[in-house]
Design a protein around this nucleic acid. Sequence first.
DNA 1: TCTGTGTTCACAT
DNA 2: TGAACACAGA
Length: 461
Amino acid sequence: MGIQGLLQFIKPLLKEKHISEYQGERLAVDSYCWLHKAVYSCGRDLATGKPTRSYLLIRHINYVVKKAVDLKNMGIQLVMVFDGAPMPCKENTEEERRQTRSESLKKAEELEKLGNIKEAERYYTRAVDVTPSLAKEVIEELQKYNIECIVAPYEADAQLAYLCKIGYVSGVISEDSDLIVFQSTKVLYKLENNGYVKELKLDDLWNHPNYNMKKWTHDQFVLMCVLAGCDYLKSVKSIGLKTAYKYVSQHGELRQIISKLKRDIGKVPIDYEEQFLKALYSFKYHKVFCPLKGQMVNLNPIPEDIEMTDLSFLGETLSQDVILGIARGRLNPFTKQPFCEQNLKRKIDEIFQPLSKPSGIKKVKVEEEIKSLAQQIRFERKTQRSKYFDKGEGPQDGNTENPQEDFIDKKPFPIIAEILNPFKPPFANQNAIEKTGPLDFLQNLSFRKISLTTIFSESTN
DNA sequence: TCTGTGTTCACAT
DNA sequence: TGAACACAGA
Ligand SMILES: [Mn+2]
């Protein structure tokens, strides 16, 4: 997934940083990275849908929310971005994943029956499907903390890059090499719990110590990546990043490269050029949500004289109502329908309440848990989202015709105002320090005393 | 030296 | 959602 070997390729360009250096900035988070890690803490319960402990039904939410709130408390503003519908051309990949998930589930259930709980657990974690509904549960929780969430219409990668492009955020937290291909200006890779992170600035790409790309355009870089194999198109046999680099260095342009490729290697698929163009376009013109206009746009504007006229492979164009509903977590990005899952609290209630009746002890425990769920601490009610954001989202927020245009004229990009007038965390020099969540880098910094979100702590059971 | 493939990992006690 | 690593073969 991503571009095989790209992160290794750009490794010399990564700069070791500490997350505290981004205080005052606004960063977008590739939330599925966190979510996928998070579900490892409660694989069986999510995979089977038959939780053994109620807190195991929400531990993954806790993981993501805690991480986000911790960053927010450091004075980093966050935009949590979630994946939407899969691109049509990735359907086979998705099918494979569905396959392995269901196989893993079977295997896990067998192992569990045999009493091999430990091994079963391993397979259960592989069986978990991270669905929009799961994401929705996280989003609902994040929104309680006034953390902005955006569900992309398609891939989060493109959405994150777009937010960079319009200056809505100054960088992205991710693990995915595709972010570079999508032209994100700054990507923070490998955020550790101690706060260290590896930063890539897109501008540095052209000064690679081992590969001369000084005169390259970004399009040429994308060319290299697609040549080496990407999610949208497998590479021709024996072409990896290194040889792709040579081809682009020597020929520079798509048609020439492909004809040279055909001369060098016989086995080039007949429709390779067409597929190649589609892959390039999928990177360049991916459909995303614009939070300023409240509309669906392409990552880059489609030129008048574009070669390929049928762009349906980019996915359908959604109406403003639908894209807004998806982006803000009201509609399922797969079905475009409202989420029909019942409220999480009620779900927990329903599953555990009957079980608890015979045993008085258990019932008390469950009630405590639900009470604790209901009492999630809210803090910092002061809104960080300016009115402009809401205005930008059009009629839904009480605006009538054409709200986005006059909005943009008045205040181009909210973030720019905030760069000029950086957000000063209110706790900058206050003395109260509290040890908080799992991110130990918090411990060495000065923080306002704050109650962190712990929906359930491990000690409840 | 480079690429393709298979395996393991991500949580947290 | 993804990457790292090891190893075999061209
Ligand atoms: Mn990707």
